[in-house]
Design a protein around this nucleic acid. Structure first.
Lengths: 245, 245
DNA sequence: GGCAAAGTAAATATCGATTTTTTAGTTGAC
DNA sequence: GTCAACTAAAAAATCGATATTTACTTTGCC
């Protein structure tokens, strides 16, 4: 069965705000703002407010919100509008484990199927990330850039996986995980370890050593998740709400 | 037919078609029609057609479709409307394995946390299902009823799980899996084995024997998935498309 | 003063009409 | 005959206005 021709290849997929449709634009903007915390967990998403913020009409906004509700970033409350889905320590843990499971599946498949192009994508993405990791600055724009390149690298690693549903769910969970990472600004610290893990990931991937990759990714994700829950605990910052209506 | 006694505990309070909002109604109707195959894979979902079919305006329909796109049942094509997401042998396999993974996680958690109420729910749901399984008839309405009670039973089993995201993803995948089961009418056959597995599942669950439950559910899901892919192979019926934008 | 009912303001949900884009069909030049 | 530019019809996306529903505030009663 033919693969989607145009969707995969490009490393720098997201962020294309130049979409022709308002709905698409709204979806991307909202997603970005929720993931990076500009729209805080539990916040009521009033249509008028969003209309002002993005200069997009109510209809496309509602469609975008519905879409995000399907992904679980937003909660749709019957007759009472939408709100940013909550975050909690328990969910952080849940998400972390799911991310690990899905990432492992996707990586295994990708390592088996990856061809030369894949290899090139991985190497390119790694160097791009590595460059950003070296210049550690707690500045905000840089943090965004780092997160973007991190996404890009992990995406490249699994980009040869042919299991569409695994990738789909992985995408949903990855975004949630990123949201938690960002909430608990764990970036500047431990950068050393994380960088080393990325390097190890690259090496093991290029060797097609599945077990090694799994071992590294497990440490990598578990460490991150641990840091997130620790940060949340000390923050005491929580909110509730389910991930579905 | 009166519905399940208490559908609360879990995130997915389905089945309530009497919702006040058109969007909710549309979401449920569309979901049901896609899962049971009334709207076939790959079908273009034209707004006018849906308006006639459900007597619901375009705006709520579009919102419902966006929601389903987030869940992966529907594909949203920029500026070219929506279509029912495709089905293929490869995806059947992918979905099957994901369902297994997620079901295991949810079951483990549920078994540990389940209280008396949970036990009651499980037993009730089992008997309800068992009654339908006994009267095997290939008639259509009965098939729907069977699938409904099957859903109800499995939902009851995991209903004590407190991992919201696991449940959310499990829900998405369960629906897809059901869709495949239905596409390849594997119901009437093998009913014997399936029924036995349900019984084994019940017993092991009430014993809180995690490993036994995992063993049974593994056989159960793998068998089902195998039957689905076999049926698809002989059917030769496939269609493509990705599950993400 | 506290509580409940009524009324007002705010926000959501939905419709109908308009604009834009895509798809299909046709014509005409090479 | 093939391809491309143009045109007409269809469909999708979006806006603006209206109808509902919810949230808030005031008022009247005990």
């Amino acid at each position: 069965m033919t693969l989607a021709p145009d969707l995969q290849s490009q490393p720098f997929a997201e962020g294309v705000v130049g979409s022709r449709s308002q709905t698409e634009r709204a979806t991307q903007l909202l997603r970005a703002d929720i993931v990076d915390g500009a729209l805080v967990p539990g916040l009521k998403l009033k249509l008028e407010m969003l209309r002002d913020r993005y200069d997009i009409g109510a209809a496309p906004l509602r469609e975008a919100l519905s879409r995000l509700a399907g992904e679980g970033l937003v909660i749709a409350q019957e007759q009472r509008g939408f709100l940013v889905s909550g975050m909690s320590i328990e969910e952080a843990h849940d998400i972390g484990e799911l991310r690990l499971m899905l990432e492992i599946e996707a990586l295994r498949s990708s390592l088996r199927l990856g061809d030369d192009q894949w290899q090139t994508r991985v190497i390119t993405a790694y160097h791009w990330l590595e460059r950003a990791e070296r210049t550690a600055s707690p500045e905000d724009g840089h943090l965004n850039e780092l997160e973007r390149r991190n996404l890009n690298f992990h995406e490249a690693l699994v980009s040869a996986c042919d299991r569409r549903w695994t990738l789909h769910l992985r995408g949903i969970v990855f975004r949630q995980h990123e949201r938690y990472r960002r909430l608990s600004r764990i970036h500047s610290r431990k950068n050393r370890q994380v960088s080393e893990e990325h390097r190890a990931l690259l090496d093991a991937a290029l060797e097609r050593d599945e077990d090694a990759v799994v071992a590294v990714i497990t440490t990598h994700i578990r460490r991150t998740t641990k840091a997130v829950t620790d940060a949340l605990k000390s923050l005491g910052a929580e909110s509730q709400t389910t991930c579905d209506d």
